[in-house]
């Protein structure tokens, strides 16, 4: 095959990959900028520019509260799981004790749990604890997927640090807690940022628990709020508003992901997090 043909074929494939990845979101943005009947004309390039949908979703109803709820839940979940995971990962990666391998396998197994398997039991617990319809139920429930993942990735990361960094501190008689806080934490910022971001995304996107444990519109998180956005009647699906809401909750994620691109790819491949 001549070189030119091969080269053209390759670049055609590259263009296909980029269009395949980017087009649906581009089209969502395009739709969100349309208003009135413009919505029902198919355009491939931007022709309308109306912020009416954004104004609508941000001023009418409880969507801003939903965003705030999602931010609170995701931030608290990330903070708690990172705190619990750093010390646990230290123990799992740098202290030799009987049953360590079994423990790691258990944690891996929990990360594969289907959420539906714990849904009935968690629901009973949430009601019993009186946190049904509050954000606490989600903060608690989300530990099931963020905690095993953060522990796993941080363990992998800490295990690869050299022994020398710890030796001096041990000789000086520092306690394990001091070693974690003073020696490891400063070295771990990159890993903490990556795992924290991935856990944040997972918590931000979660749907099943959020749908089940919250029944109050103003306590809902954004995925459920978007799924339940509806118009005046069953037939009138407010596509413009839905697309505006979708763009609002997705743009921050995309920006973060693009900024931390390299780190995320290494974190993803170390932890095999679900999409």
């Amino acid at each position: 095959m001549p070189y030119a043909v091969k080269r053209t074929g390759f670049y055609a494939l590259v263009v296909f990959i980029v269009l395949f990845s980017v087009f649906p979101f581009y089209y969502a943005i395009l739709t969100s900028l349309k208003s009135g009947t413009a919505l029902f004309r198919v355009n491939y390039l931007p022709v309308d520019f109306s912020l009416a949908n954004y104004e609508g979703v941000l001023t009418n109803g409880v969507f801003p509260t939903n965003i705030l709820n999602s931010v609170i839940v995701a931030v608290v979940v990330v903070a708690i799981s990172l705190f619990l995971a750093v010390t646990a990962a230290y123990a799992l990666s740098r202290i030799n004790f009987a049953g360590r391998g079994l423990l790691l396998l258990t944690i891996l197994a929990v990360s594969m749990f289907p959420q539906i398997a714990v849904l009935a039991g968690l629901f009973e617990m949430v009601r019993w604890a009186g946190v049904y319809n509050t954000l606490f139920s989600l903060i608690f429930a989300y530990m099931i997927f963020t905690l095993p993942f953060t522990v796993w990735v941080l363990t992998t990361f800490m295990r690869d640090l050299p022994i020398e960094i710890e030796e001096a501190a041990i000789v000086d008689g520092a306690s394990p807690f001091t070693i974690v806080m003073r020696v490891f934490l400063p070295l771990m910022w990159p890993a903490l940022v990556t795992t924290g971001l991935l856990a944040f995304i997972a918590a931000w996107n979660e749907f099943l628990f959020a749908l089940t444990f919250i029944s109050n519109n103003s306590t809902r998180t954004v995925p459920v709020a978007i799924a339940l956005l509806s118009g005046a009647s069953e037939q009138e699906i407010p596509w413009g508003t839905i697309m505006a809401a979708s763009v609002i909750v997705t743009v921050p994620l995309i920006v973060l992901v693009l900024i931390f691109q390299r780190k995320i790819i290494s974190g993803l491949t170390a932890g095999g997090v679900k999409g």
Binding site: V222, P223, A227, V249, L253, V257, G275
Partner: peptide, 13 residues
């Protein structure tokens, strides 16, 4: 970077 976009978008969205 482009390839990461679908992954970053919430499933519901």
């Amino acid at each position: 970077a482009a390839v990461l976009i679908p992954w970053a978008i919430p499933t519901i969205v």
